[in-house]
């Protein structure tokens, strides 16, 4: 895997040939977020050999930005005349989850979380609640965000004014998973997750420590830390967390590979799954801890283990 060119201000996703996954008649209305989300969800389902999931849970910080911008610009340009209905339909935040359901003909529970940098985690929490009720459920859960064309520049403009500024370019992507409480063929265990709105730098390592403890683990058991480091001021949180772990613990700064977008932690989880290895592969890694936050708020800790 290559690190991104960090001098660029935006980096688009490496889009696959969507025609291999989505019929052209359906794809013609889909903006990148919808295409990425639908394909990522379908790839995950295929891997899990599931055709009908028991729930579809989607997280997206900014939703379908491209169609939102298209509709907004059309109405501003033409003084509310000749506005494109398709862009409005496609601009709603639940378009990705709805299109996954429509494509599969899946009438099951369907929900969409749009809570900034905790959108993916919210979907994951919902999945864990569903699994407490129905352990054998197979749930599609994921996060997706697209760059769009204009608003991202304003977000970037504000970020660049910060000192020190983030060195990570704005980006986009989709990461979807099939989760279940039945292990089946799975080899990776999403052990636990904890999120909170606000916490001080002094308290963060204790919060991480107590989550480890609740799961019968200590800092020494974690072989790899995956951190959302950006170079911005709030990196002090990542330093506080990593200082609590032994020096030899591997550190990966996932935004160098994924870029900055609200649901990029989905990429970190995917990365952890790759590192822990798929069924019947060898990996010397056992436990990975992911920690992310945004501007010192909305913290999340996820522990992933090889089982």
């Amino acid at each position: 895997m290559e690190a991104l060119n960090i001098t660029a201000s935006t980096v688009a996703a490496k889009h696959p040939a969507y025609r291999n996954y989505i019929p052209p008649a359906a794809a013609r209305r889909m903006a990148p977020a919808v295409k990425m989300g639908v394909v990522a969800a379908n790839v995950a389902l295929e891997k899990a050999q599931i055709t009908q999931p028991d729930a579809i849970l989607t997280g997206s910080g900014l939703g379908c930005m491209q169609d939102t911008e298209k509709f907004l610009n059309a109405l501003l340009e033409n003084n509310e005349q000749f506005v494109p209905p398709t862009a409005f339909i496609q601009s709603t935040h639940n378009t990705v989850g709805a299109q996954i359901a429509l494509g599969l003909g899946c009438k099951a529970y369907n929900n969409t979380y749009v809570h900034g940098s905790l959108s993916f985690e919210s979907a994951l929490l919902d999945a864990s609640l569903l699994l407490e009720d129905k352990p054998d459920a197979k749930i599609v859960v994921g996060g997706v965000d697209e760059l769009g064309t204009e608003f991202v520049n304003y977000v970037k403009m504000l970020a660049e004014k910060e000192t020190p500024a983030s060195k990570i370019p704005m980006s986009e992507g989709a990461s979807f998973f099939v989760v279940s409480s039945e292990m089946g063929n799975a080899q990776v265990l999403l052990r636990d997750m904890n999120t909170c709105r606000e916490i001080s730098v002094a308290e963060i390592s204790n919060r991480v420590g107590s989550l480890l403890k609740e799961n019968g683990l200590s800092e020494e058991d974690i072989d790899t830390l995956i951190l959302g480091t950006t170079g911005a001021e709030s990196d002090v949180y990542y330093k506080a967390v990593s200082d609590a772990f032994p020096k030899q613990t591997t550190q990966i700064h996932f935004k160098k590979y994924a870029g900055q977008y609200n649901t990029s932690i989905g990429f970190a989880v995917w990365f952890a799954v790759q590192l822990l290895g798929e069924k019947n592969t060898v990996s010397d890694r056992k436990n990975i801890l992911i920690y992310n936050q945004e501007d010192g708020r909305n913290h999340s800790v996820i522990i992933v283990s090889r089982c």
Binding site: T92, H93, T112, Y113, V114, G116, L125, E198
Partner: peptide, 9 residues
């Protein structure tokens, strides 16, 4: 300060 989220369906 505890769990906070937003839903949009």
């Amino acid at each position: 300060s505890e769990f906070t989220t937003t839903i949009s369906t």
